[in-house]
C-alpha cells in the first residue's frame, strides 16, 4: 500500500519504500479490535436501547441497557489506552454482568424472544473468550519477566575511579569555586 504520508514529506526527506514488521503483537491487535468493538456496542446501547430490549423481549430494561452502554464505552476507552490490561479486565467483568442480565431474559415468564436471548448469550460467551485470551496474551507480551530475579547492577557506578573519587571531584570543585 502506498503510504499517503510520503506526499507531505519535504523534498530530500526520506520516504517509505517498503514497510517492515510492526511492533504491534497479535495481542495488541486483538485488544485494539476489542476496544473499538466495545465503543461501538456501547454507542448502540446508549442510542438505541429500545431496539435491543425489543429484540430480546426485555422491555422496561432500557435504563439498564443505557448504563451498560456507558460502561462499554468506558471499558473501550481504557482498552485502547496504554492501560489496556485494566480495560480488558473491566471488559471481562462486564461480560459477566451481561451474561447474568441476559440470563434473566431467558427465564422471564412469557418471553417469546428466548431464542434471541440464547443467541445473545452465545455471542457474549464468545466475546468473553476473546477478552480472556487478549488479557492473558497481553500479560504475557507486556508483563515484566523474571520478577524476583532482577539484576542489581551494583558494579555500574559510572565512575571509573569510584564513587568516592567522584564525590571528591565535586567537593573540590565547590571549594575552589567558593574560594
Amino acid at each position: 500500500m502506498f503510504p499517503l504520508s510520503n506526499l507531505v514529506r519535504a523534498k530530500g526527506d526520506p520516504k517509505i519504500l517498503r514497510s517492515g514488521p510492526s511492533s504491534l503483537t497479535m495481542a495488541d491487535k486483538l485488544t485494539r479490535g476489542l476496544g473499538w468493538f466495545s465503543i461501538g456496542l456501547g454507542l448502540t446501547e446508549l442510542l438505541a436501547p429500545r431496539k435491543i430490549t425489543r429484540a430480546l423481549g426485555m422491555r422496561g430494561m432500557e435504563p439498564l441497557v443505557r448504563a451498560y452502554g456507558a460502561r462499554e464505552i468506558a471499558a473501550g476507552v481504557m482498552t485502547l489506552s496504554t492501560e489496556k490490561h485494566l480495560g480488558l479486565a473491566s471488559r471481562v467483568a462486564g461480560d459477566g454482568l451481561d451474561i447474568a442480565t441476559l440470563a434473566v431474559g431467558l427465564v422471564r415468564p412469557g418471553n417469546r424472544r428466548r431464542d434471541n436471548v440464547a443467541l445473545a448469550i452465545a455471542m457474549v460467551v464468545g466475546v468473553t473468550v476473546l477478552d480472556i485470551a487478549a488479557a492473558r496474551a497481553t500479560k504475557v507480551a507486556h508483563g515484566r519477566n523474571g520478577a524476583g530475579d532482577r539484576r542489581k547492577f551494583a558494579d555500574r557506578t559510572g565512575f571509573p575511579q569510584g564513587v568516592e573519587a567522584a564525590r571528591r571531584i565535586g567537593t573540590t570543585a565547590r571549594t575552589a569555586g567558593s574560594a
Binding site: 519535504a10 523534498k11 530530500g12 526527506d13 526520506p14 520516504k15 517509505i16 519504500l17 517498503r18 514497510s19 517492515g20 514488521p21 510492526s22 511492533s23 504491534l24 495488541d28
Partner: peptide
C-alpha cells in the same frame, strides 16, 4: 525505524536523505 501510529514502530526501507 519508522512511526506508523500508536505502539506501531517498524523497521522500514526508506529513501536516503539528501542535502537540502
Amino acid at each position: 525505524l519508522v512511526w506508523h501510529g500508536k505502539e506501531d514502530i517498524r523497521c522500514d526501507r526508506v529513501s536516503d536523505p539528501e542535502i537540502q
